[in-house]
Amino acid sequence: MEQQEPIHTDAVVATVLETRLDASSAPALKKRITALIQNGYIRIALDLSAVEFIDSSGLSVLVSALRQLPEDGDLVLIGPRNTVLSMFKLTRLDRVFRIFGEPAPALAALSARTIECAMDR
């Protein structure tokens, strides 16, 4: 389903390899994200660049992931194609998720959040 690359003890980049994030594939992605969170990865950068099609089931999995995260957790999205990005805009979920075109600023945002939370402790 996805490749994972830990970038910190509690941060990970997960790449979705499915080209269609729909009602058929969404449950498996939901399980994988839940497992990441349960394993302590509460800051997640999800690379969507391979996703060619997303429907409301796919969007629901991402909202569900966001809801599972603790208050100091974070979920950012990387590289959605224009058509996929248009679904976030249409459903106003672009106001909910931080979406980045490239990995570098997404990782910087996650790192900044890590430092910010460490300073809060």
Binding site: M87, T91, R92, R95
Partner: peptide, 18 residues
């Protein structure tokens, strides 16, 4: 769709709206 609360987005129920 534009009435969605960004702080409390519903998890499901967007199909018909879309």
């Amino acid at each position: 769709l534009d009435t969605v609360d960004p702080l409390h987005p519903p998890e499901r129920g967007r199909g018909l709206q879309i």
